[in-house]
Nucleic acid binder design. Structure first.
Lengths: 136, 136
DNA sequence: GCCTTTAAGGAAAAAATTTATCTTTTAGCG
DNA sequence: CGCTAAAAGATAAATTTTTTCCTTAAAGGC
């Protein structure tokens, strides 16, 4: 199991308390928006700058330590780069979850139909999560 | 075949030259960003306001005449709402294309794995288009 | 462990994007 | 036509993101 410090070093980023915190928050919550990150960060670093969040998010995204997930009709969230997966967004409680499903078939089909050589897929599904289904 | 005027009326939007032009541009080009729409619009309506673009795009999106397509690492584009489809983005020439492929299988699988009731899917695939493959 | 180099953080300003406000113009309809 | 409601245009305001500048701190060599 890789430490957060190693993770930063592998991506040629200096190990700072703010960066450790950003990664810790993403590990804990899975998906967070810029605003989420800023608000949570303020609890531990009361005079962190919003620019620090932006600069770090942009750098970590460039080195592919994290990635942006664009959500339909909502703000982007960020997540640690792991194995490829799909995103589920609940219309009711707005949570974002990962699910791991093979995408080979749809990619193969898309390549056949379009002639593209596909490098990466971005799949987000919108609906009602099990918990919110139970509530209705 | 439905006229653009009918399309606007069905969505309870007044038929204005600017709206007709927006729809005509989207029909011609398929996918356009706010900036694209504004720059093209200026050729025919030299004193159109950027606010007009935003207001119309927002209204047309609310009535589901058009929809936003969020593109990884790029700006959103807008398209006329047609049947469900996937988006292909070329890494080289940055064009966005629709392709029509059944998504039933992946949605069924995602529902089974996650327990979500899925309402809509957003699938974007990134790669190299046939033309750009030929160029390399 | 200190010193130097280089990058990061914080504060603020600037830039870019989006929305709101106000007035004038125009579409829709009798 | 003439009336009414909505849309357009101009502008300001609000929001979001990036940049700049200065201070602080991390990394690596000694």
């Amino acid at each position: 199991m890789e430490t957060t410090i190693e993770l930063l070093k592998e991506h040629a980023l200096k190990v700072t308390p703010q960066r450790l915190k950003i990664i810790a928050m993403l590990n804990e919550y899975g998906h967070l928006s810029i605003e989420d990150l800023y608000r949570l960060m303020l609890k531990e670093f009361p005079n962190v700058s919003l620019a620090t969040i932006y600069k770090n998010i942009n750098q970590m995204a460039q080195t592919r330590l994290i990635q942006e997930v664009k959500i339909p009709d909502s703000k982007s969230v960020y997540e640690i780069v792991k194995e490829p997966h799909l995103h589920m967004v609940c219309d009711r409680c707005h949570k974002v979850e990962d699910i791991i499903i093979g995408t080979d078939k749809i990619i193969k089909e898309a390549e056949a139909v379009s002639g593209y050589r596909i490098e990466e897929s971005f799949i987000t599904l919108r609906g009602i999560c099990p918990a919110c289904q139970a509530d209705s």
